[in-house]
């Protein structure tokens, strides 16, 4: 019986140490967050969930990521929930409106799912943000999206206004925004939950507010 034809030992591609590095994600610009996360930013080709009442800072984190993406001249997309993305806010952040596709609120969940698939498969976008009011997707749909994201190397970020304590394993990164602090509920290979002071995230967020707020208050 002929021996099992094994490939020659020499030409087996052994994995070198640096290849074992985790895939580099999209840097968020917040040093604390970047150092803590595995992918030095948002996972590329994976789902992330930012939870928090509107106005607690979830969208601005996504905007900082898009800022990074646009600095490399790449595309980003955003799906509006009941509130609209306001361009006047964006032009203080060197966001290139020519490279940011905005989609009006989809009518129903099924159309949202179809839309997400189309956006991912079009392989145009590095990061896709989706603002959800309550139309949350079912697990099988999330799995399919996860597979598509991995295939097309797209970072899909859900911004959910209704925070739920249940940690869904499908999301490789979940961040919960509260009043004054931010908890990372789930991050691959990282001890979570991990709390951070809100001001660190907002250190230079809303720069118009930092000192003027003080001015207004006095």
């Amino acid at each position: 019986m002929s021996t099992l034809a094994l490939p020659e030992l020499a030409n087996i591609p052994f994995v070198s140490a640096d290849q074992l590095q985790p895939p580099a994600g999209l840097p968020t610009g917040v040093r604390v967050l970047d150092d803590f996360l595995l992918w030095r930013g948002l996972p590329q080709g994976d789902l992330s969930l930012l939870q928090g009442a509107p106005g607690t800072g979830a969208t601005s984190l996504w905007i900082r990521i898009v800022q990074g993406v646009h600095s490399q001249n790449k595309w980003a997309a955003w799906i509006n929930g009941d509130t609209q993305l306001f361009p006047a806010h964006l032009n203080n952040y060197k966001i290139n409106l020519k490279k940011l596709l905005v989609v009006k609120e989809p009518k129903d969940q099924e159309q949202l799912f179809w839309l997400l698939q189309e956006l991912i498969t079009s392989a145009l976008f590095e990061v896709i943000g989706c603002n959800l009011k309550d139309m949350f997707l079912k697990n099988h749909q999330l799995q399919k999206l996860k597979r598509l994201c991995r295939l097309h190397k797209v970072a899909l970020v859900f911004v959910n206004q209704k925070a739920s304590k249940f940690v869904n394993p499908l999301f490789s990164l979940m961040i919960h925004f509260q009043r004054d602090f931010i908890t990372i509920q789930r991050a691959l290979h990282r001890p979570t939950p991990f709390n951070m002071a809100g001001s660190m995230i907002h250190a230079n967020f809303m720069h118009q507010f930092k000192n003027t707020a003080r001015k207004l208050l006095s």
Partner: peptide, 25 residues
């Protein structure tokens, strides 16, 4: 080619009554 892909995407969305586009100030 990205411009063609983007046109294709927007045409698909428009056909299924889903508004998509860029923000003009």
């Amino acid at each position: 080619s990205s411009e063609d892909r983007w046109r294709r995407l927007i045409s698909f969305a428009k056909q299924s009554q889903c508004e998509m586009g860029f923000l003009q100030m």
